Amino acid sequence: MKVLVISDTHGLLRPEVVALAHSADAILHAGDVGKPEILDTLREAMPGEVHAIRGNVDRTAPLKALPETLLLELGGVWIYLLHDLTQLDRNQLNLVPEVAGMQVVISGHTHQPKLEGRGGVLYLNPGSVGPRRFRLPVACAWLHLKGDQITAEPVTLEV
């Protein structure tokens, strides 16, 4: 299973992201969608599932109805989405991913791509595909799920 992981569109859906969406089996959006049309366009671009959570900028309807966090199973892999990883790091969510059986934690918010393993859990921040912030790259990631094999492939977009 090939999952496109994006975050922090902030109302801007780049054509490069839509092109990637055509190759995805599923899309995960880690918050700060910005405009509901973003999710509509992603759903139209690919036949699979689009899952999204709300970020700190998603304060008005219908985006404020998105869940704050999401636990889902894709391809036999348990994935947890939240926008701001500091909530988890500060234990504000009363959750320990490795104890709960999660294999992947996906977050956004910082606009900075990051990939690391901790306690047997893959932590992925795809970066931001929305408006460029400071000198950070415009980035997303592929998550490849094949049985017990979980790999992440960072993608920097040339824009």
Rank of each mutant, 00 (worst) to 15 (best):
M46H: 15
L93G: 03
L85K: 05
L12V: 14
P62D: 05
P15K: 14
G108R: 01
W78N: 12
M46T: 10
R14G: 08
A21F: 10
G75R: 11
E68S: 06
M46Q: 15
T86S: 15
V50S: 06
A61P: 15
V17P: 13
A45K: 02
L82T: 02
E73P: 03
Q92A: 12
G101K: 10
V57H: 08
A30V: 05
D32S: 04
S107V: 01
H29K: 02
D58R: 03
G76N: 13
I53Q: 03
K2Y: 09
G34A: 11
N91D: 12
D40N: 12
A26Q: 11
G34H: 10
H29S: 09
E68V: 14
Y80F: 15
D58H: 05
A19S: 14
D25W: 08
I106N: 00
P15D: 14
L12P: 05
G31S: 13
D58P: 06
G76C: 05
R90Y: 14
Y80S: 06
D40C: 05
V17Q: 11
D25F: 09
L85N: 03
I6G: 01
A24I: 06
G11T: 11
L85M: 06
D89R: 14
S107A: 09
G55S: 08
G31V: 10
T69L: 07
Y80W: 15
L70M: 14
W78F: 00
Q87S: 12
N56V: 09
R43W: 10
T86V: 04
H22Q: 14
I53W: 01
I106R: 00
P15H: 13
E16Q: 15
I106D: 00
E37G: 10
V18C: 01
K35G: 03
H10A: 03
L81S: 00
N94W: 15
V5T: 02
L4I: 01
I38P: 11
G55T: 05
D89G: 03
Q87R: 15
G34E: 08
W78V: 07
Y80A: 01
E68L: 13
L82N: 08
N91W: 13
G34T: 03
P67E: 04
P15T: 12
N56F: 03
P67T: 04
R90D: 08
G55Y: 03
H10P: 07
V77W: 01
L20A: 12
L93V: 07
L93S: 12
M46K: 09
L70N: 09
N94K: 13
L66Y: 00
A65R: 15
D89T: 02
E44M: 12
G108D: 00
P36Y: 04
G34Y: 12
T9Y: 10
L28W: 13
V96P: 00
L28S: 05
A52G: 08
L42A: 06
L93H: 09
L82Q: 06
Y80Q: 04
A26R: 12
V96Q: 13
M46A: 04
